[in-house]
Nucleic acid binder design. Structure first.
Length: 285
DNA sequence: GTGTTTGTTATCAA
DNA sequence: CTTGATAACAAACA
């Protein structure tokens, strides 16, 4: 599940690979993935001049000031494979099996940059790609997303105000992209552990001290996960097709029935907001 | 065959 | 209009 740290890792990887290379060919293998018209035509001959991120959404800035938006949803992957001297992508032989974290079994779109190809793979087909103009891009990044952690926009004043008059669980609050952008199921659970808050607590019952802890925990958790190049649980790979190493740093997510690293109590798993939710009964109140 | 996995949105309710 | 709760979607795997 690519969340903010995973998407950020991909962004940084692709920056080094695909910037300023003219797009030669675009192959759509699954029409469902592409959500805008004239997709191939708009890309061929174009260049990517920058890569931005808003929450879990990747924004490729095109030379003609249009924007290629890519959302990986649950199982999306974006990986660049360089070409060798004979013009074939390295490691791109198998069409069916996973070899070296790479197969074309679930490849939905391929963008050929001459120096290599960018593969959009997505087993579950929840992800999408679309090209939009300046106006629509601005509308999306302002309307659909809340405060962006890891930017100057994430201030104590703004964060604290978000807790006013809300009547939902802290877990649902953290998962809501319109409130805070970029947290998903893994990092929402991790943030709650870090702040010592049980995920089913109501937002209006969380005290100032706890809000302060959350304010510190959210960037801290995300930064560490980025440093470890993201969490690979099922399908996440970075822009080069490699796994992230943050899995072993997780305190609660995926550690059901295991001992808490801090207090040795058994990690519990419940269902909240329709999501698997992990917490430590000893550390979280 | 069944349950489980989750990011987002549609839908309905208040 | 805003907020919240819930189901639905998709496909593979244990």
């Amino acid at each position: 599940m690519p969340e903010l740290p995973e998407v950020e890792t991909i962004k940084r990887d692709l920056f080094k690979r695909i910037l300023n290379h003219k797009i030669r060919l675009v192959e759509i293998r699954d029409k469902k993935i592409v959500k805008s018209n004239n997709f191939v035509k708009k890309l061929i001959g174009n260049e990517i001049k920058g890569i931005e991120r808003r929450g879990k959404l990747l924004i490729f800035v095109l030379k003609n000031k249009e924007y290629l938006l890519v959302h990986l949803k649950m199982t999306g992957q974006l990986m660049f494979k360089a070409k060798n001297k004979s013009g074939n992508v390295i490691g791109g032989h198998s069409l069916t099996k996973m070899e070296d974290n790479f197969s074309e079994k679930f490849t939905r779109v391929v963008i050929d940059f001459g120096v290599g190809k960018l593969f959009f793979n997505d087993m579950r087909r929840f992800g999408y790609m679309k090209i939009v103009g300046e106006e629509e891009k601005e509308k999306i990044i302002t309307k659909d997303f809340g405060i962006e952690p890891l930017t100057p926009d994430f201030t104590w004043d703004k964060f604290n105000k978000l807790f006013n008059k809300r009547t939902t669980s802290i877990k649902a609050f953290l998962l809501n992209q319109k409130i805070i952008a970029g947290l998903g199921n893994i990092y929402a659970d991790e943030a709650c552990f870090c702040a010592g808050i049980k995920p089913d607590r109501q937002v209006n019952n969380i005290n100032l001290e706890e809000i302060k802890k959350l304010f510190k925990c959210i960037p801290k958790i995300l930064q560490l996960a980025i440093k470890n190049r993201g969490t690979t649980f099922n399908s996440f790979v970075d822009g080069d097709g490699q796994k992230g190493s943050h899995f072993n740093f997780l305190k609660v997510y995926g550690r059901h029935k295991e001992k808490c690293k801090r207090c040795s109590e058994k990690i519990k798993k419940i269902r909240l907001v329709g999501r698997g939710t992990h917490f430590c009964p000893g550390c979280q109140k």
